Amino acid sequence: FNQRAILYFKGRQYEKSIADCERVLELNPCHFGALSGMAQCYLQLKKYRQALKAFRQSIRINPELDGVRDTIRSIEETLA
């Protein structure tokens, strides 16, 4: 499901990618890659609150994700 989600993202089929990321998370709730990928889809769809939530979850699982903290700050500024 995760690999297909990546393909959907690359094909700009963001809703399908999100659906596959959700399936990945049902199988493995700690899959930070699926959370980050889903967040990127939400950003593309301009669904900033959902993106922020997914990015925050991913950083809790893996605090070493490059650039995610900056992206979180950027989204928070956009929403402020």
Results as ranks from 00 to 15, higher is better:
2 N>V: 06
2 N>D: 14
3 Q>L: 13
4 R>K: 12
4 R>E: 08
4 R>W: 03
4 R>V: 06
5 A>Q: 13
5 A>R: 12
6 I>Y: 11
7 L>Q: 15
7 L>S: 14
7 L>D: 14
7 L>A: 15
8 Y>E: 10
9 F>A: 07
9 F>I: 05
9 F>E: 03
10 K>L: 10
10 K>Q: 15
10 K>A: 06
11 G>M: 09
11 G>E: 13
13 Q>D: 15
13 Q>G: 08
14 Y>V: 02
15 E>G: 04
16 K>Q: 14
17 S>K: 07
18 I>C: 08
18 I>V: 14
21 C>D: 01
21 C>K: 03
22 E>G: 07
24 V>E: 10
25 L>I: 06
26 E>F: 05
26 E>R: 11
27 L>N: 06
27 L>Y: 05
27 L>K: 05
28 N>H: 08
29 P>A: 06
30 C>F: 14
30 C>E: 15
31 H>E: 12
32 F>Y: 15
33 G>M: 07
33 G>V: 04
34 A>T: 06
34 A>D: 06
34 A>N: 05
35 L>M: 04
35 L>E: 04
35 L>G: 00
37 G>Y: 09
37 G>V: 06
39 A>N: 00
39 A>P: 00
39 A>K: 02
40 Q>H: 09
42 Y>H: 02
43 L>T: 03
43 L>H: 03
43 L>N: 01
44 Q>D: 01
44 Q>M: 03
45 L>R: 02
45 L>F: 02
46 K>V: 00
46 K>W: 00
46 K>L: 00
47 K>H: 00
47 K>N: 03
48 Y>C: 02
50 Q>P: 00
50 Q>R: 02
52 L>F: 03
53 K>A: 03
53 K>E: 02
53 K>L: 01
54 A>F: 01
55 F>I: 02
55 F>S: 00
55 F>M: 04
57 Q>E: 10
58 S>D: 00
59 I>M: 05
59 I>H: 02
60 R>N: 14
64 E>I: 09
64 E>S: 14
64 E>Q: 14
66 D>V: 12
66 D>I: 11
66 D>S: 12
67 G>W: 11
67 G>F: 10
68 V>G: 10
68 V>T: 14
69 R>W: 10
70 D>Q: 13
71 T>G: 04
71 T>F: 07
72 I>P: 10
75 I>Q: 11
75 I>H: 12
77 E>L: 14
78 T>N: 08
78 T>W: 11
78 T>C: 09
79 L>S: 12
80 A>H: 12
80 A>T: 13
